[in-house]
């Protein structure tokens, strides 16, 4: 008999995410997966799961859920307050969730996305090797709704707890970017990137962090569609860059001025609208 959790309230957005389904771009299938994979992996380690187990990705917290059997949980990402049966608890540590208790996840102090892992992981059927919800192509489970019931897998014995400080989102991000593959579409791409100033637009989502600010001057026209990778900074004709996140289309026809390293991408994925962004071109 599987243990189950029941989502009482999802908050603004609750999605099942693991580390995604990379390796399928040639079929037109985006990688998907947690936008802040380091935080999901940490949450999984804290509850004794494999790092790649499926958990919840919450946008601005706000979820409430209950369980039909006791389990170990952990919340990671930005620092977030939690309540287990109205008793205050904290993120970034393993917590015991007793049978039939209620967990409320608060709104994170900073940042966008909190991760919630359960001992045993969320055990919904995988599609193309992953349980992640892909909002662009509709692969994987639907976004969660109030009263959804999710099965948990068999728990492991925890192998020890990490001590990791919560992620703290900054007012302004300085993001290293490697020029190319299409920096030759821009007059002096390096200087334009170095001198520009942007902020994260409220039209950002899991497909991309859309930036608003300095117009990047580029040639007119389009490229025959070509493969895109996560972290690619695409520049449409309006000159406002879009940094591709996990649910990005696998091909695109706008020039990519540069690529953000995976290690820095999660900071953009955690940036609230209005966060300042500058680029630091590197070799």
């Amino acid at each position: 008999m599987n243990r189950k959790i029941t989502i009482i309230r999802t908050g603004p957005q609750a999605l099942i995410q693991d580390l995604g389904r990379p390796g399928n771009a040639h079929l037109g299938v985006p990688p998907s997966g947690a936008v802040d994979p380091d935080s999901l992996k940490l949450a999984n380690r804290l509850v004794g799961n494999d790092e790649a187990a499926a958990g919840l990705e919450l946008l601005l917290g706000g979820a409430e859920l209950t369980t039909d059997a006791s389990c170990t949980i952990a919340v990671t990402g930005p620092h977030t307050r939690l309540w287990i049966d109205d008793k205050l608890a904290d993120s970034h540590q393993p917590l015991h969730l007793p049978k039939a208790s209620t967990l409320k996840v608060g709104t994170p102090d900073t940042g966008l996305r909190t991760y919630l892992a359960f001992s045993g992981g969320i055990d919904v059927p995988a599609e193309l090797g992953s349980r992640s919800t892909d909002l662009l192509s509709g692969i994987g489970p639907d976004p969660l709704r109030d009263n959804d019931v999710l099965p948990l897998g068999t728990p492991n014995v925890p192998i020890g707890a990490d001590v990791v400080p919560p992620h703290r989102a900054l007012q302004t991000l300085v993001i290293p970017i490697r020029l190319g593959p299409r920096d030759d579409w821009f007059d002096d791409a390096e200087t334009q990137l170095q001198q520009g100033e942007w902020f994260v637009s409220d039209r950002s989502n899991r497909v991309g962090a859309r930036l608003s600010g300095t117009k990047l001057n580029r040639r007119d026209g389009e490229i025959p569609s070509e493969g895109m990778i996560t972290g690619a900074v695409q520049v449409p004709p309006d000159g406002q860059p879009v940094v591709f996140l996990n649910d990005h289309p696998t091909t695109g026809g706008y020039p990519v001025i540069g690529v953000v390293d995976r290690d820095h991408l999660r900071f953009l994925g955690q940036a609230r609208p209005g966060t300042g962004v500058r680029f630091r071109p590197i070799d």
């Binding site: 990379p22 390796g23 040639h26 025959p224 569609s225 070509e226 493969g227 895109m228 990778i229 091909t251």
Partner: peptide, 12 residues
């Protein structure tokens, strides 16, 4: 190789 994405004039 993690991804191999042919397109009209390119292979990523």
């Amino acid at each position: 190789i993690e991804e191999l994405v042919p397109a009209a004039r390119t292979v990523l």
